[in-house]
Amino acid sequence: MLHYIGRRFLQLIPVLLGMTFIVFLIIRAIPGDPAQMILGQQATKESVEALRENLGLNNPWYIQYFDYLKGLLTGDLGVSIRTNQPISTEIWPYLAATFELAFFAMFIAVVIGMNAGIISAWFQNTWFDYLAMVIALIGVSVPVFWLGLLEQWLFSINLGWFPTSGREEVRDPIMAITHFYLIDTLIQGRYDQFGTVVKHLILPGMALATIPMAIIARMTRSSMLEVMRSDYIRTARAKGQKMFIVVYKHALKNAIIPILTVIGLQTGLLLGGAILTETIFSWPGIGRYIYEAIGFRDYPVIQSGILVVAFLFVIINFIVDILYSFIDKRIKYN
């Protein structure tokens, strides 16, 4: 087992290195001189030249890349042009906001998606099954950004149930400790604030959850249907076991592996979807951080932001891979 984890980890290194190289190339390929960009159009030639020297932009590209890697290894993600703050410290609140949103969305997706899939398989070919599968089909085809707008229009503008955007009540700001507001408000015993945090989470969470929910529901259904046909299920039913226990205990246990695969894959993909959801709901997460940096041509932030998200994506997939071998002992890795 340890051997397998070790080998998989070693395989990650070239991929991560390759990613740093591609992001490095992309940023270097952007037209325009970064030094000029930082100093603005009025800067004198000498000051631009001095900054170029200072930033190492006059060095050959491989030296620049090597310096960049060295910085990354020591946790230096560069300095934001816009705020003049080190990105490594600035990025955390944004990341925490995205994590909170993504976990919340995944929670909704798993709870609703799995149950919808299980019940669809249980009552195959009934109206519930058809309805759930039609909704799931629409769910995979609906653009997240449109769904977000529809939710805002229906649930906040028309019904007034939830706030349109943001993470907290502006008049009652939350004291950030971990920057996970659900946790922060609980630590401080501010249960009223906890409620507003949940209220703010629901619309963007639902929008972000839709696609994984639909995919999880479809996967759960097909996986359960396969298992429900097997002999041991028939035996359990013949013994007079309650259907609920047969479905949720016996069948689910063997149907869970492909479902977990999908959940793992979708968790990584949520990070990508988060960019769009965050834009619509003005959610101060990493996607919005990168998106705003694009508007300001804040290249160090774009570069580090993309790299951090991409690294997380790879690492989540790695963890999911490792988890399988724990859950399903039949999987043998060679």
Binding site: V15, M19, I26, I30, G272
Partner: peptide, 15 residues
Amino acid sequence: LAFPSILLAIAIVSI
């Protein structure tokens, strides 16, 4: 493939 696709697309368009 290791990049989330929309993120990579954003990066490419920004060049």
